[in-house]
């Protein structure tokens, strides 16, 4: 099926992109397009105009700056998969399929804040920082403030997620996923990271309206206790034909235990 018609613009720099967005608030940013274009093909999304930032070289690639990796938002899942980033390569292996990973980008996925995406759990557990540029300049948003709601991230109107700052060394990390049999998106996914200072952070995705930290799990693991049960309240989770909130809550417990055993 064809998407509804739209105007297409391609930005040649971040600066130009921001200027174009300031001028035309209807512009919808397209990165790899692997969430947006399927929605447009089903006409669930009908943006009047697209701003393509996929080709911006300044947003692509991974470089090390001291204790952090700085990852360009347009770095593809395939590049992430083959990188030396902590945890993210393991997670990227679970994203989509090889063709999706060649086009889909880490920044596009994180800014899109799909509640069943894989990366957000890793981002929260790693405590990454998001570098966002807008008309007023650049700001840095901690992972805990990035995922605001269902398909809603801290990236505001007229803003662009440019980079992700990821701690370069951690002592251990793991991502455990239970996938939807049809879409292969996460029904539940849990990331657990043992940081350089020994602190353990953990987060889940897929089960609720947005990815969130798992404070009870962190408390238990940091106290040397097993992961246990009851890590999330089913009342706050999503339910569908394939997985009820109660089942998702149970899966978070199971996956947390498995991930914790690996870090």
């Amino acid at each position: 099926m064809y998407p509804a018609n739209f105007d297409y613009h391609r930005a040649s720099s971040v600066q130009e992109a921001l200027a174009m967005m300031a001028e035309n608030p209807d512009l919808k940013v397209i990165a790899g397009g692997h969430s947006l274009l399927p929605a447009m093909r089903l006409r669930l999304a009908q943006p009047p105009a697209l701003l393509d930032v996929f080709g911006l070289e300044e947003l692509r690639g991974i470089r090390r700056e001291g204790d952090v990796f700085v990852v360009g938002a347009m770095t593809t899942h395939a590049q992430v998969l083959r990188s030396e980033l902590p945890l993210f390569p393991e997670v990227a292996h679970e994203v989509g399929d090889p063709m999706v990973r060649n086009r889909g980008t880490i920044g596009g996925s994180l800014a899109h804040a799909d509640p069943s995406a894989d990366y957000p759990a890793a981002a929260l557990a790693l405590g990454v920082e998001f570098v966002i540029r807008g008309p007023g300049g650049e700001r840095t948003v901690p992972a805990d403030e990035m995922f605001v709601g269902m398909f809603e991230s801290a990236v505001g109107l007229g803003e662009l997620l440019t980079h992700i700052r990821i701690p370069a060394s951690v002592r251990g990390s793991a991502y455990e996923k239970f996938k939807h049999p049809a879409s292969h998106y996460a029904i539940a996914g849990v990331a657990v990271v043992r940081h350089a200072d020994g602190e353990i952070r953990a987060a889940y995705t897929g089960a609720g309206e947005r990815a969130e930290r798992l404070p009870l799990l962190e408390e238990r693991l940091n106290a040397g206790q097993p992961a246990g049960e009851g890590l999330v309240d089913a009342a706050n989770l999503l339910g569908d034909r394939f997985a009820s909130p109660e089942y998702r809550a149970h899966l978070v417990d199971v996956l947390a235990g498995r991930a914790a055993a690996r870090v």
């Binding site: 089903l42 939807h180 049999p181 049809a182 879409s183 034909r241």
Partner: peptide, 23 residues
């Protein structure tokens, strides 16, 4: 194991794409 062309009681189709129908 996976495939299920499910409807709700009123006949709304619940598995209308490969995102919901698992081949």
């Amino acid at each position: 194991l996976w495939e299920d062309a499910a409807y709700d009681d009123e006949g709304n189709f619940l598995a209308g794409t490969f995102m919901e129908y698992a081949v």
